[in-house]
């Protein structure tokens, strides 16, 4: 069952500065949203709150899966959503171990976890490097591995915080292709500074300005 995500009056401040000022928006399932806005506009903050990594100061993040009752923000819900951060934080372990991490914490056992992780690695063209230590990958490969790691758990909602910000054109192309292949199959909310990229990938382009969200 696909997840519907609703932000309801989200506020977040850092010190005296309010970054989000009552964001309210409903994200329909299985669509791609691109979130745009200048540096410091609150894109990362919003993604961290929507993905339940950080709490909002005020307001609610509501997930529903068809029923009208909001889902509890428990581990079961958290395991249906994944956020790929700009600082990707690869584990000091093999590429395969990184890719299978999300599966292993969900209790998927050895062979099955390996099979599914290798499948995710093949999507990003890293299956040949599955024995290599992840920290020895190039920055583009590292970003692709982080994407594979997120895809391996097949989340209903995938948040991507500037997924191509630190990679070259070739790797950007690979990542964009993967995102487009997921179109219509899961909800993706990504932040980007690249207007053309946002138009290429997204069903809906959103702008964050003065702490509020607007459809473009």
């Amino acid at each position: 069952m696909s997840l519907v995500l609703k932000a309801e009056g989200l506020w977040k401040s850092y010190g005296q500065k309010a970054v989000l000022k009552g964001i309210t928006y409903t994200f329909s399932p299985n669509r791609i949203y691109a979130l745009m806005g200048p540096n410091g506009s609150g894109k990362s903050t919003l993604l961290r709150i929507l993905s339940l990594l950080d709490p909002a100061d005020e307001g609610r993040v509501i997930y529903t899966d068809g029923a009208s009752t909001p889902l509890e923000h428990d581990i079961a819900l958290r395991r249906r959503i994944t956020l790929l951060l700009p600082d990707i934080g690869l584990f000091n372990a093999s590429v395969l171990s990184n890719a299978s991490y999300g599966l292993r914490v969900r209790g998927v056992k050895g062979k099955e976890a390996k099979k599914r992780a290798l499948k995710a690695l093949s999507l990003v063209g890293l299956e040949q490097k599955h024995r290599q230590n992840a920290l020895t990958l190039s920055s583009g490969e590292a970003q692709r591995l982080a994407l594979a790691r997120a895809l391996a758990v097949e989340p209903d909602v995938l948040f991507l915080d500037e997924p191509t910000a630190s990679v070259d054109a070739e790797n950007t192309g690979v990542i964009e292709k993967i995102i487009l292949e997921m179109k219509g199959r899961r909800s993706i909310i990504l932040s980007t500074h690249d207007e053309a990229q946002a138009r290429r990938l997204a069903d809906v382009v959103l702008y964050l300005k003065d702490g509020l969200i607007y459809e473009g």
């Binding site: 990594l53 600082d87 990707i88 934080g89 690869l90 991490y101």
Partner: peptide, 26 residues
């Protein structure tokens, strides 16, 4: 341990205990 690794463990669905084990592994 890099805070990004801890965030990654959380976003990938680790429970607090699994996150702690991951930190010790790192």
């Amino acid at each position: 341990v890099d805070p990004a690794v801890i965030d990654a463990a959380k976003t990938l669905g680790a429970t607090p205990f699994q996150k702690t084990i991951t930190i010790f592994k790192e």
